[in-house]
Nucleic acid binder design. Structure first.
Ligand SMILES: NC(=O)c1ccc[n+]([C@@H]2O[C@H](COP(=O)([O-])OP(=O)(O)OC[C@H]3O[C@@H](n4cnc5c(N)ncnc54)[C@H](O)[C@@H]3O)[C@@H](O)[C@H]2O)c1
Ligand SMILES: NC(=O)c1ccc[n+]([C@@H]2O[C@H](COP(=O)([O-])OP(=O)(O)OC[C@H]3O[C@@H](n4cnc5c(N)ncnc54)[C@H](O)[C@@H]3O)[C@@H](O)[C@H]2O)c1
Lengths: 232, 232
DNA sequence: GCGACTTTGTGAACGTTTGCACGAGCGACC
DNA sequence: GGTCGCTCGTGCAAACGTTCACAAAGTCGC
């Protein structure tokens, strides 16, 4: 496949927003909306309309002036750019509370991600079936990754085991890692690591909370603080 | 309390890194490391040393030239800045897979967050005890939030119910929301909303995966792509 | 076919974040 | 007390990201 290949490099900030546009556009498709303006999409995503246009322009995706964007075509474009025209195979390391919740999560298969295995070292968890996937021993990881050509690994182990899990994933051939453990895992260049850390999120929230409190107690009549952030 | 109050406004990018420094510094404390240089901390956090120094300087936290930073004092400073010298009360809306995993998660109480309630509308889930917290009916939300002075709400409902959950939280008096549902929830100015979306993370990963593939198939000898991102 | 209207695509201005480079301060040792 | 080596704090420039503002390109009604 190669009608037109990834032209420019897309800025990180834009890449992080494309999935959100995609989700909103899919909702529009379900409501049989065939066309959408940058302004409408911007409202849905709670961002600036110029940003939407610029983001979309990176994909070379063309709207029609005076009209807007064809929703279906836009969905196609974004999916292609994000690599969602492939199917991605993933493994989960750690079959505890979080690992099990993830295994059972419908959001994976919905979007073209197939869970090829869930791994743990706890004997008592082995062979349990969670979310339709049997828990296997961590020692089988390399084999499954190689055999099924898995490229994404999810770490759902306790913090102490996360770096080891990452090492094993990388050694097995995984090139992208999503880490839920609250530690910084290091990886060689060429491996993409992203961290999702609940406590970091909470601490950012409490920073703003605290700020609100002290701001309120200090000056009573401030112009109007910008808030309602990176809305979700 | 007001020994010295929040001086300047701290940049968002810095606020997002402070929790990570904090986590690393706490680990250092456990290892009885009393002092740390910006360079060492930078290595642990996988960022640039100048960035670490600048980040810390926003707090007015002073290191000692030629020596480094006192770990304990730095921990104190960051905690204060993030509002972790208060205890924050939170509620969780949605007691499904994710809500239950969150309720049972040790990471909350560890860091000064107290779960004051878990709420659902599914009769069959009411009064179950998950993670030491009894599941209550959503109709009790306002009462609990008011009575316990809850400021943070976590949304773990299906996507369709998330906006309603947010509305109820806000009406009840919550001012910060952490949303796990894959939708954009809108909130009035003055409410901080953060979104944690698994599928967004995966799509960002697959974008990079896809990029690696097409880059490899196009030019064989590129200088060396920067990767190994926002390491965790 | 023309004018009124709409909405895109993008240059340019502006704001934020990063990273370098270096002066200044501190400790240690002579 | 002087010198040396280390590490902080920060001015500055470059990179990155956002927003404005407007010409260009389209639709639509007549
Ligand atoms: N539970 C949550 O809601 C939640 C939320 C955010 C983050 N987290 C983080 O996610 C991670 C997992 O949380 P959890 O609640 O599922 O913990 P858990 O203790 O329930 O599960 C951890 C699992 O990992 C397994 N494990 C331990 N060492 C392993 C290794 N070396 N290789 C493979 N598996 C190993 C354990 O046997 C266990 O099954 C933790 O780092 C936690 O901080 C959890
Ligand atoms: N399970 C995961 O691993 C996972 C991962 C990432 C994101 N998510 C997202 O988190 C959310 C919850 O996921 P889940 O797997 O726990 O789903 P779930 O279906 O297991 O749980 C949802 C719960 O919300 C309750 N609920 C429904 N409507 C409600 C309402 N109006 N008010 C209060 N409660 C209501 C339901 O009764 C149910 O108990 C979803 O939006 C999902 O996309 C889940």
């Amino acid at each position: 496949m190669s009608p037109h290949r990834s032209r420019r490099r897309i800025p990180d900030a834009t890449v992080a927003r494309l999935p959100i546009y995609l989700q909103l556009l899919n909702e529009q498709l379900e409501n049989e909306v065939a066309n959408i303006s940058s302004d409408e999409l911007a409202n849905l995503a709670a961002v600036n309309a110029a940003k939407v246009r610029k983001d979309l322009s990176y994909m070379g995706s063309y709207g029609t002036r005076g009209v807007g964007y064809d929703v279906e075509y836009l969905v196609y474009q974004i999916r292609r750019e994000l690599g969602l025209d492939h199917e991605w195979r993933i493994v989960i390391v750690g079959a505890g509370n979080l690992g099990q919740a993830l295994s059972g999560y419908g959001g994976f298969p919905d979007r073209g991600y197939t869970i090829e295995g869930v791994f743990d070292i706890d004997e008592s968890k082995l062979d349990h079936v969670v979310g339709g996937v049997r828990v296997r021993h961590l020692d089988d990881l390399a084999q499954v990754v190689a055999q099924k050509d898995v490229s994404i690994g999810v770490i759902a182990t306790p913090a102490g085991a996360a770096q080891d899990a990452a090492n094993r994933l990388i050694k097995s051939g995984v090139t992208s890692i999503l880490n839920f453990a609250p530690v910084v895992v290091s990886a060689p260049l060429g491996i993409t690591v992203r961290r999702v850390d609940l406590s970091v999120e909470l601490q950012i929230l409490s920073y703003h909370e605290q700020r609100r409190l002290t701001a309120a107690s200090q000056l009573r009549a401030v112009p109007a603080e910008s808030s309602s952030h990176a809305s979700a």
